[in-house]
Amino acid sequence: MDKKLSTEDVSKLAKLARLKLTDQEKEKYANELSGILDYVELLSKVDVGDLKPTHQVTGLKNVMREDEIIDYGYDVKSLMNNVKEEKDGYIKVKRMIG
């Protein structure tokens, strides 16, 4: 049986998901992911009639709250502790436009 995903497919997925893979990894994932997709293929034979998909199970809808500021005591300084590069209280990133 043909593999569900070729190494080219894996390259494309990796690009969409912002992952960089070596050629060796692409080969490995093409095999592994194809195996997983072969397994889930058993759903294709199921007749679900006119059932609708379920995306969540609580039945809750549009959970709203008052549009007001709640102070949870977060301080900006401690939030910035996990940032790699900071300048004047802003997060520094690579240039976006060449």
């Binding site: 759903l43 679900v48 059932l51 379920t54």
Partner: peptide, 22 residues
């Protein structure tokens, strides 16, 4: 990413969520 990508979304993701209903 694969099961959510256009062209596969219905066959995989929506199908799975419908079997979930069942």
């Amino acid at each position: 990413t694969h099961v959510l990508s256009s062209g596969y979304f219905d066959a995989y993701y929506n199908k799975a969520q419908t079997v979930r209903t069942s």
